[in-house]
Design a protein around this nucleic acid. Structure first.
Lengths: 184, 184
DNA sequence: GCCAAATAATAGGACGTCCGACTAATGGAC
DNA sequence: GTCCATTAGTCGGACGTCCTATTATTTGGC
């Protein structure tokens, strides 16, 4: 038979597929139907939206990381480089980096460790507060930030996989979500 | 002075803030303005939308994990439990789990390892294909899936932090994004 | 029937994230 | 002036994700 026995185990599956695609139905929509069927209708849209958000993040991150991989940086480190590049002095305290990116202090330590190993940034003690560490962009760091931005713009940001109208609507909705969460 | 010196380093920061909130401007909107200013306008909305997506994911995941933590499961493991619960026989091959959740095979191995340690699922060899492993929900696993769903619905999915209109629009846009990415 | 190609799952490792605990420095109350 | 609460950053560990490589099994071409 042309259908692998595994795939027919739960009904509805008619063909094997690579892990990145090829299902003949939308698992999230199927889950949403289950929610309605079990009288969790009040939560169905929220469940589907949040689950979709998780998956959309995974898709977007994979694209971004794939574009950046040849340059030897990750998106987390790229964000730090951009923050420094856009700062007036090319340097920021660890704490400010964490606040702007909304990540845990240890995540900043992690990213800066690796950027420092790659000679893209340097660490120095803050002149006005000896507890604080100033992170400064090196020329190599700025050069990489520029190249990475050019790559990301061309390969991802200019073609995010949605029509312009959707991109704009998505941005507005997510901005409201972030504001409601206290992001700014 | 009442303003920590660190916070004034790049201008605009007027107060210290806990890491989860309190910035007096939106860093993503500021980045978008930089994109426009540097003549990357064609990529500005895409950049802002994708960056917002990353942050929105972080916010949503934190809420979900926070709700699940008292129950001793993570969202990744919860998704596996739900998939099994909704399946006709309460069991699925590893491969199918990975395809439905769109994650790497090793992620399924990881999640099932931990669920098995917690006696929420069992592993057995697939009767029709000795290469494959059938994962089966235990009574404790189903009981936990039910309790976790009740908790998640009440604490997160019924109040996702957006108005119903936005939740619905978000779901539609992300569904188009996932379809364009070949998800189903 | 036999053997090579494809497939299912796991092992080991890299990376980013968070958490709790810890050190060092700051600064306000007295 | 002294002391203690607060703050900045790091360390070790847990977890989820992906990648590459490997083992076992199945399947299809001949």
């Amino acid at each position: 038979m042309d259908v692998n026995v595994i795939w027919s185990y739960d009904g509805g599956m008619t063909a094997g597929a690579p892990i990145t695609g090829g299902l003949d139905f939308d698992p999230i929509d199927a889950a949403r139907a289950q929610w309605v069927e079990r009288d969790w209708g009040a939560a169905a849209d929220g469940m589907a939206a949040i689950t979709s958000l998780m998956r959309a993040h995974q898709i977007a991150l994979a694209r971004v990381e794939s574009a950046l991989r040849p340059l030897g940086v990750t998106f987390a480190r790229y964000e730090v480089l951009m923050l420094l590049w856009f700062s007036k002095r090319g340097s920021l305290p660890m704490k400010v980096i964490g606040s702007r990116l909304q990540v845990h202090p240890t995540s900043v330590t992690n990213a800066v460790d690796r950027l420092e190993d790659a000679a893209l940034v340097t660490r120095s003690t803050h002149p006005g507060d000896r507890r604080a560490i100033l992170v400064t962009l090196t020329p190599a760091g700025q050069e990489l930030a520029e190249r990475a931005t050019k790559t990301l713009n061309a390969e991802v940001f200019e073609r995010p996989g949605l029509e312009a109208r959707d991109v704009h609507a998505l941005l507005e909705i997510l901005t409201r979500l972030r504001r409601a969460a206290g992001d700014f």
